[in-house]
Structure formats: C-alpha cells, structure tokens
Computed example of a mutant assay.
Amino acid sequence: MSSTATPEKRRTALDALHRSLGATMTDFAGWDMPLRYGSERDEHLAVRTKAGLFDLSHMGEITVTGPDAAALLDYALVGNIASVGVGRARYTMICQADGGILDDLIVYRLAGTEAAFSTYMVVANASNAQIVLDSLVERAAGFDAVVRDDRDAYALLAVQGPESPGILASLTDSDLDGLKYYAGLPGTVAGVPALIARTGYTGEDGFELFVAPGDAEKLWEALTEAGASAGLIPCGLSCRDTLRLEAGMPLYGHELSTSLTPFDAGLGRVVKFEKDGDFVGRTALAAAAERAAAQPPRVLVGLIAEGRRVPRAGYSVVADGRVIGEITSGAPSPTLGRPIAMAYVDAAHSAPGTAGVGVDIRGSHEPYEVVALPFYKRQK
C-alpha cells in the first residue's frame, strides 16, 4: 500500500504570533496564513474606518540587477520598466507568448541612476511566484542581468486604512508626506530597516513594509502598540479579499488567468507598445488590442444584489433567458451591506443600469444591478 506525502506548508516569520492571537489559519498557495482573527466584518470595517495590520509574507520577491536589468524587464514584462524612476513602483503584468496573463506584478526600482547599478524588485503573487521566477530566469538569456530569488530574504507587513499614515509616522523619521502612491523608500521603522512602500490592495491609503524575517515580530508588535489608540487591529486574508473586491481590484485566478489577455481583462492600458524593442507577447497582444477595438470582448463589471443571496465564482450571469457571462468573485460587502460580485459579461449588457440581469444561484435567477467598478472609492 503506497501513500503520497503531503507537502509541508510554509510558515511566515510571524506564524507563532498569529497562533498566539487565536488566528484561524488556512492553506494559501502552500503557505499557512491567517484567515481571520475574529470577525471578518470587524476587520474589514477597521481598515475602511481606522487601520488594519496584515502579514503578507507569502508574496514573492524577486530581485533583478545589473547593467541590462531594465532591458530585461522591458523584454520580459508588458510595461515600460525603463521609465520607472528610482524610488517609484509600477503595476504591470508578465504574459505568455500568446498574450495570456501569467501574473500581475508590482515592480519597484530600488536603486540605480546609472544602468550599471540598477536594482529592481519584482513582487509576484504567492501562487505564481515560482512561475514568474522561472520565466524571468528563462527570459534573461542574453542579457547582462542577474535574477535572484529573494522570497526568503523578506517578510512583508502591511498597515492599511485612514489612520495608517499617523501610526507609521509615530515610528519613523522617513518623509511619509512626500512618499507618493506607488513609491517606496528605504528607511527605519521602530528601529527596523525597511523598504517603506505606499502601496496596498484594500482601496485605502496605506503602506507595505519589506523587512528581514528576523525583524518581523518586533515590527508587528511596535505597530500594534502604536496603533492601539487609533483602532488598529490584526487582519487576515478573508477581509483582504472583500476589501479588494469592493475596490474593484483583480485577483489572479479569478479576474486574471492565462486564458485572458490584458485587453480581455479591461487592463490593456498596462501594455506599452511604444517602448523600445520587442517583448514577450507583443505580436499576440497587438492582435488582441485590434480585436478588442473592433468587437469588445466580455467586459468586467460590478454587480450588486437586490436580495441577500451571495454569488460565487463560476456562477452564470443571465439575461433574456440565456447566459451572458460568469461571476469571477463574489462576497457580502460590509461597506455596502449587500452582496456584490465582479463578472465578465457580454458587452451588450455591460452598461451601468442595464435592466434584466440576474445571477443563476442554484437554479434561481436572482436579480442584480450592473454598476461601474469600483464599488467603493475612498475620499482623498
């Protein structure tokens, strides 16, 4: 009788701390991660109104450095990475030769006013980190650049919400007021060296802090203490998902996949045909852009329930007695107080306010309102 060994789940540097806080843990992309600490709704609303603290150490950091680092990334990714200034970051994607999306990424330019000293950090989704690493290594052939797996070199903490600037400011001398959205600077937080990035996945203002794993617990405890009076609480992956859904942010494996190009996903703006040289997927993506211009593909829209039943990924969107699309993500919205979903639907039914649209929930066609994304946008 044979048995198959179950792969050991990876644990972040904060694993023991999460368990001491009573977190409900879950397997996510091979990592044992906190799903929630208490009420998902309370955690969600804390980020919307005060602040939440997340452990995101499962994300995949890949360093690219060398004289040809920018040229390699311009070839390997769809964005114009050479134009990213030192201390800035850019949202982009890595695609297959056929244009299918392998992952969506954030690329930080850490250093290098001169090409010979350029250093970039590519941050991939946990589920795709190995795929992205392997693709970058393969695409680096012929370039004078080094691709390094730095997943074990970083822990990643995020403090998100309207109170987050004040909380972080109490622990650092770095110029947070001068730190723009999608920018990052090296600094010290609570005595811990960190890359301080003004990025996030919640729809709120906030920061992501890349630190050495050995410093993660000290930083978590310092942030917890500094944020206590401001209402900061620990938050798990469950509320991170409802926060990003309300903010209309795509999730790989739901709104993005290898079966879709950026143009199919309504994100053709990230593809920069004007940059110099060839890049992987250029020909296929140019064709996809032409198809999208001539006949729009299914459009990613928001749906708000008129009732209380929650749609889930894979459910059919219906109108006029036929299937017109498919749910990609769905959940109760703590902010709106009703179930919401993102879905790809036929262009003819994609306009906000389109009547007669429903979701097939176990044989019952539940009425939904078509709305423009995002569902929620913070006040500046």
Rank of each mutant, 00 (worst) to 15 (best):
D103Y: 08
D103W: 02
D103Q: 13
D104E: 14
D104N: 02
D104C: 11
D104Q: 06
L105Y: 11
L105P: 02
Y108C: 05
Y108G: 05
R109K: 07
L110Y: 02
L110I: 15
L110D: 05
A111S: 15
G112S: 00
T113R: 10
T113P: 09
A115K: 01
A116H: 11
A116L: 12
A116C: 11
S118H: 03
T119Q: 09
T119R: 13
Y120F: 13
Y120Q: 08
V122W: 12
V122K: 00
V123M: 14
V123S: 13
N125T: 09
N125D: 15
A126P: 12
A126L: 00
S127D: 07
S127L: 00
S127N: 04
A129L: 10
A129F: 02
A129Y: 03
A129R: 08
A129T: 02
Q130P: 06
Q130F: 15
Q130M: 09
Q130L: 14
Q130A: 15
I131H: 06
I131C: 01
V132G: 03
L133K: 12
L133M: 11
D134T: 04
D134P: 14
S135K: 08
L136C: 07
L136H: 03
L136F: 01
L136W: 00
V137W: 07
V137D: 02
E138D: 11
E138C: 15
E138S: 13
E138Y: 05
R139W: 01
R139E: 13
A140K: 01
A140M: 07
A140Y: 02
A140T: 10
A140D: 13
A141P: 11
F143M: 09
F143S: 04
F143G: 00
